[in-house]
């Protein structure tokens, strides 16, 4: 799985993503600069976490107009796999590749902690091989991860099974006390209609080996590998 990791000024999780994919999983990885217009033969593009353009104006608002994002939009349209993590999720929403927006956390606090996520669907590219209701443990690290969508958009997400992950208790119950940021319906991650574009607030790349506190993040990257293999058959 040839992976490109997009680096905007202010991106900070690019090397963590490369570590998880290359050092841990042995997949080929290259960094993609924000001015690049050609993604070449990549299979997966990751928009990593961080503070692109200092989060000025709104998180992801400036990054969305970079040359590389035009290429990412075309890549997604052609069915390429796109994964937006944390700030990358915000960029995907600003670019209208995913619906909704991420507001300031309900607590007004930056939350940096491990959360439990319940897997809500297993048809998208990034949930291949998972079980519905499976619980993943991943870290979050954000001040603006409070998912918002208007009721009509929420309805579309729900009826089309596009809510991918919800914050839950370790036992898999979606409950207010398990929701770290006030997200509507406990939503932690959503995908597009085709299932090839995923945005989520938690950081799978920071849960890639036991030494870091867990390795559930690898399940998500392996799902992408499986999706590509299935598509190649």
């Amino acid at each position: 799985m040839k992976t490109g990791i997009v680096v905007f000024p202010g991106t900070w999780s690019d090397r963590d993503c490369a570590y998880a994919l290359h050092d841990v999983l042995g997949e080929p990885v290259r960094y993609v600069g924000h001015r690049e217009r050609d993604l070449g033969d990549l299979d997966l593009v990751i928009l990593p976490g961080g503070f692109s353009y200092g989060d000025y104006l709104r998180c992801g608002a400036i990054a969305r107009f970079t040359p590389v994002m035009e290429a990412v939009a075309r890549f997604a349209q052609d069915g390429g796999l796109v994964l937006g993590i944390c700030n990358g999720f915000q960029v995907l929403q600003e670019a209208r590749l995913l619906p909704g927006a991420l507001l300031r956390n309900a607590s007004c606090e930056f939350r940096c902690e491990w959360v439990s996520l319940r897997v809500e669907q297993t048809w998208s590219a990034f949930t291949q091989g998972m079980r519905p209701g499976q619980v993943l443990s991943l870290p979050i690290s954000h001040g603006e991860g409070n998912f918002y969508a208007d009721p009509a958009t929420l309805e579309v997400l729900q009826t089309n099974d596009r809510i991918v992950f919800r914050y839950a208790t370790p036992q898999g119950q979606v409950a207010p006390q398990a929701n770290p940021n006030g997200s509507t319906a406990g939503i932690a991650g959503i995908c597009n209609a085709r299932g090839n574009v995923l945005g989520l607030m938690p950081h799978p790349e920071r849960a890639c080996e036991a030494l870091l506190g867990g390795s559930d993040g690898l399940v998500l990257f392996r799902a992408a590998v499986m999706a590509l293999q299935a598509a190649a058959v």
Partner: peptide, 13 residues
Amino acid sequence: TLKPVVNDPQGST
């Protein structure tokens, strides 16, 4: 400004 239907935790604080 945030739309009236959107919660504003900053404003509440």
